[in-house]
């Protein structure tokens, strides 16, 4: 069935991007199945509407809502960063996630903070956890600055980011070396200088 854009009653998204990996991210999950999803971004109308087809439990962490993570202090230790991230995620006790939506968030973090995030997330994932995020081409910041959500299995939709944090454009090698909670399984090229990455449990 051809993908259709969702209709929204208020201001619509400004960007639409075709994706090949979202369908793979949710492979094996059928409508009505239970699923737990961690989204590192703020609540997203499109993503929530997409996940409504499942019996979903979702945490929207809004990771960079915390100023200490948005503008990391060089003197903050990894231990302190872990504490801040744990408080920001506020995951219910005992919850583990089937899916983690990383979006651009790894590129908004410096290396120590990325390592801290990896350490905090690791116990929240199980052997079949999958993740989705964006990579960069040739270490360059993408041409667009959008906050993305899932419109349907074949499309992402983006809205402008208010006050975009510093973008560090980490290479896949650097992500692989410092974000150990999940490993990059495959990637495909998107438009505007982006890669989309599918992550799997290591």
């Amino acid at each position: 069935m051809r993908a259709r854009r969702q209709k929204h009653p208020a201001k619509p998204p400004e960007a639409w991007v075709a994706t090949r990996l979202i369908a793979e991210l949710f492979a094996g999950y059928e409508e009505g199945d239970p699923i737990t999803v961690l989204d590192l971004g703020p609540g997203n109308a499109s993503t929530l509407a997409f996940l409504s087809r499942f019996r979903a439990k979702i945490v929207f962490a809004d990771l960079l809502d915390n100023p200490a993570l948005r503008h990391p202090d060089e003197d903050v230790s990894v231990a302190r960063a872990k504490e801040i991230i744990g408080q920001q995620l506020a995951v219910p006790t005992g919850m583990q996630f089937d899916i983690c939506l990383l979006w651009d968030y790894l590129h908004y973090l410096d290396i120590p903070t990325m390592e801290a995030l990896s350490a905090v997330l690791q116990p929240l994932f199980h052997n079949n956890t999958r993740g989705y995020g964006f990579g960069t081409l040739h270490g360059k910041k993408p041409d667009d600055a959008y906050q993305y959500g899932i419109a349907d299995p074949a499309q992402l939709c983006g809205r402008p980011i208010p006050d975009e944090p510093q973008y560090r454009a980490h290479s896949q090698q650097r992500v692989g070396d410092h974000f150990l909670a999940l490993r990059i399984a495959r990637g495909t090229l998107l438009r505007a200088g982006r890669l989309e990455l599918l992550f799997e449990a290591p």
Partner: peptide, 26 residues
Amino acid sequence: LEDGAKFKGSIDMDPGDKQSAAPSLP
């Protein structure tokens, strides 16, 4: 969530199912 709504936290759309630590497997 309408476009423009701001939300941070958890959403449970399966309130009849008690939270368990066992992951759901594809």
